[in-house]
Write a protein that binds this DNA or RNA. Structure first.
Lengths: 199, 199
DNA sequence: ATCAATCTAGCACAGTCGTGCTAATTTAGG
DNA sequence: CCTAAATTAGCACGACTGTGCTAGATTGAT
C-alpha cells in the first residue's frame, strides 16, 4: 500500500482549502474540483476522503467551530473575571484577521444551510453552545454559581449574546480601527454593567 | 407591438419569484431558469428584463430593501417616542413571517456578495442607513435634536443597532413564542434605558 | 393594412457541476 | 519478491449553468 496518509491531517488540509475558496470566491464557488485544486490535490484524492460535496462542506464547518471552541477554552484564565469574559467575547467578534475570516466562512455556511440541510444542525448546536456560555459568563460576572444562573443572570447572558453577535455582524461591514475601538468599548461597558448588576 | 407590459411590475414579480427560490432552496439555486419557472415565465421573458443573473440578484436585493424602508417610514407616528422607536426596531427583527423571510433573503444576499460584488454596495448602504436611523432614534429618545446627536446619543444608537441585529440573527435560529417575547423584552428594556439616560 | 417596436420563445455554445466508475500507482506486510 | 490494500488519477455521463443570438408572435400607432 502507498504511504498511509494521516486522514485527519488530510481532512483538515482540505477543509482549510475550502475556507480559502469561500473567502476568495464565496461558498457557491466551492466544488470538489475547485477545492481539490486549491489544496493542490487531484479530485480523486479529495473524493477518497470526502465522497460528496456535502461531506466536505459539513466537515469544513465542523472544523471551524472546533477550532474556535478550542481557542476560546484555552484562553488564559488569569486576571479578573471581567477581563476573562472580555477576552472570551472578543474571540467571538472579528477583531483579528483570524476571527474575521472565521466569521466570514461562518456566514457563508449559515446561508448555505438552506441548500444543505446537514449544516443546520451544526449551526444550531454552535448557537446553543454560545448562548449557554454567555449565560454562564454573566452568572460568573454577577458572582453567582455559573451552573445555576439566576433569572437576572440568564437575561444578562442573553443580552450579552445578542450584543456580541450584533457587533460581530457590524464589524464584517466596516472594521476600521475606530470601529474596533467602539465595539470593544460597548462590550466593556456591557460587561461592567453586568458585574455591577445594572443589566 | 404586443401589449406593453408594466416593466416595474414585471421586475417586482420576478424579484419576488427570486425571493421564493431563495427561501425554498437557497441563493445558490437562483438561476435565470429556476426563477423564470417560479414566476411562470419563459427564460426569454426574464432575460428581456434582466439580461444577466447579476442584475436579477441586485434588483431582488434592492426591492427588498426598498420595501422594508417604506414599511418602516410609513409606520404610524402616534403614541410616545418610546412606542414609536420600539415599533421601528421591531420591524428590523424577524418578529413576523414577513420580516423573517426578508431577513432570510437578506442573509443569503449578504453571503452572495463575495461572489457578486455588486451586492456589496447595497449591503453597505443599507447598513449605514440603519446605523444612522438608530442614532437618530436614540437622540430622539433622549429628547435631543435628532439631527445633531450628542456623543452619548451616538453611543446609545450604535448599541441599539448592535442589539437589534444580534437579536435578529438569533431569531433566525429559534423563534418560538417565548423567544419572541424575550427579544421584545430586551428591546423594550434597552429603549427605556436610553430614554432614561442610563445607556 | 402596414410598419415597427416590444415581448416571448427558444436554440446553441462552452463551460461547470456532482458523482459513479475503472484503472494505475504506490508501498507495507508476509 | 509479491501480494493486497490504500491512495491517486481521471474518464464518462447527464444535468445544470450564463449568455449570445435569432426568430416569431403580438399589437399600438399610422
Amino acid at each position: 500500500m502507498p504511504s498511509r496518509i494521516d486522514r485527519e491531517a488530510r481532512k483538515a488540509e482540505l477543509a482549510e482549502a475550502a475556507w480559502r475558496v469561500i473567502l476568495r470566491s464565496g461558498v457557491s464557488a466551492v466544488s470538489v474540483r475547485t477545492v481539490a485544486e486549491e489544496a493542490g490535490l487531484a479530485v480523486g484524492s479529495l473524493r477518497h476522503v470526502f465522497p460528496t460535496r456535502t461531506e466536505l462542506l459539513v466537515y469544513s464547518a465542523e472544523l471551524m467551530m472546533e477550532r474556535a471552541y478550542e481557542r476560546i477554552t484555552n484562553l488564559p484564565r488569569e486576571g479578573s473575571t471581567e477581563d476573562h469574559v472580555l477576552a472570551v467575547v472578543k474571540n467571538l467578534v472579528p477583531f483579528t484577521e483570524q476571527t474575521r475570516a472565521e466569521m466570514d466562512v461562518n456566514i457563508a455556511l449559515i446561508a448555505e444551510a438552506t441548500a444543505v440541510p446537514e449544516l443546520k444542525v451544526l449551526r444550531d448546536s454552535a448557537h446553543a453552545q454560545i448562548a449557554a456560555a454567555c449565560i454562564w459568563l454573566a452568572a460568573a460576572l454577577r458572582g453567582e454559581d455559573p451552573d445555576a444562573p439566576s433569572e437576572a443572570a440568564t437575561r444578562s447572558g442573553r443580552r450579552l449574546h445578542a450584543l456580541t453577535d450584533g457587533l460581530a455582524l457590524h464589524l464584517m461591514h466596516r472594521a476600521e480601527s475606530e470601529d474596533l475601538e467602539r465595539a470593544a468599548e460597548i462590550l466593556e461597558d456591557e460587561i461592567r454593567g453586568i458585574a455591577a448588576g445594572r443589566n
